[in-house]
Amino acid sequence: MTEDPFVAHRRLLFTVAYEMLGSAADAEDVLQESWLRWAGTDHARVRDPRSYLVRTVTRQALNRLRTLSRSREEYVGEWLPEPLLTTPDVAEDVELAESVSLAMLTVLETLAPLERAVFVLREVFDVPYAEIAEAVAKSPAAVRQLAHRARAHVAARQPRVRVSRSEQQAVLERFLAALHTGRVQDLLEVMAPDVVFVADGGGLAAAARAPVHGAERVATLLAGVDRSASRTTTVWLNGAPAARIDTDGRLAALSLVVADGRVTRVYAVANPHKLTRLDEPVALAR
């Protein structure tokens, strides 16, 4: 019996929706809505099920993104994407790993919904302009303009330095060791002078309400947190080595951006609603 195309392409469809929304919960809702539409379609009339399903998911994700924009504007403190536990093999696809990193997803949050959809489909999944135009109900010329604008926007904001997994892992371990000592000097030695710390507590967990800039300020903030009852585990989050911190039933996820052997950015997610995907790896695909 032939596998249903929706089932066959589910990992891809989830990845498209997640990259557009930054939320696994919302991505799952989009997949459910898309499945209902697929179930009501005459499959015999669909020449290319993969393309058809990507278009369907894109439309549903765009609808969801537009409805979410207001709630994210009213969000308490900084809004960060929902981290996902992934398997190490995701990192082997460098472009996929970069596209689902918390750093990139945070940059994508600054795009308008249409720009984000076009960027994700074109730059990550290499969808032809004509198919993107059909998915977003725009002309191919308009889609090319959106893609150009989105690329420039992302290029100006994304981390410019790629590091190997081994370097990322080594710097992460040094950072966690410094974090464990709670000494400002130890933290300063592993962070770049212009490091930025971004935390997301959503009003439900203790977290800085705005980004903290500069090594001195970040080190002082982190050194002041009592982690004597914490257990830190190195995990793979969004295709890169990261950390899970358990403290008396509370959970946090830490993801780092590394350049020249030092931490340039720290993303800390403590909102419990965003930490439900840290026990079972999520399958992602391009």
Rank of each mutant, 00 (worst) to 15 (best):
A44Y: 07
Q168C: 05
L96D: 03
V57H: 02
L105C: 07
W79M: 10
V7E: 12
L12G: 03
V124D: 00
L284N: 05
A103Q: 14
R64A: 05
V266A: 05
A147P: 10
H180V: 02
Q168P: 09
R244T: 01
E78R: 15
E280W: 12
L256C: 07
L284A: 04
R217S: 15
Y267M: 09
E95I: 00
A152C: 06
A133L: 13
A177V: 07
Y267T: 01
A156P: 13
D279I: 00
T86D: 04
D29W: 09
A135L: 13
L31W: 12
V225T: 11
F175L: 11
A229L: 13
L105R: 15
L237H: 06
V127Y: 02
S166Y: 10
R122K: 12
L12I: 01
D260G: 06
V184E: 14
T87S: 09
H43L: 06
I132K: 06
S139A: 13
L96A: 03
L65G: 05
V257F: 05
M191F: 05
E92F: 01
V212F: 10
Y52Q: 03
V30N: 08
R244H: 08
Y75M: 10
R45N: 03
S71Y: 13
L36N: 11
R45G: 05
P281C: 01
A150K: 11
A259E: 15
R165D: 02
R244V: 00
N271C: 11
A130W: 09
W236A: 00
R227Y: 07
E33D: 14
G202R: 10
R250T: 11
E280I: 02
A259C: 06
L188P: 14
A240E: 10
L13F: 04
V136A: 03
S139I: 03
A156Y: 10
T234Y: 13
R209H: 09
L114C: 06
R244A: 03
A141H: 14
A177P: 11
T232E: 07
V7C: 08
A152F: 07
R116D: 02
E82G: 06
P49K: 04
W79K: 13
D246I: 01
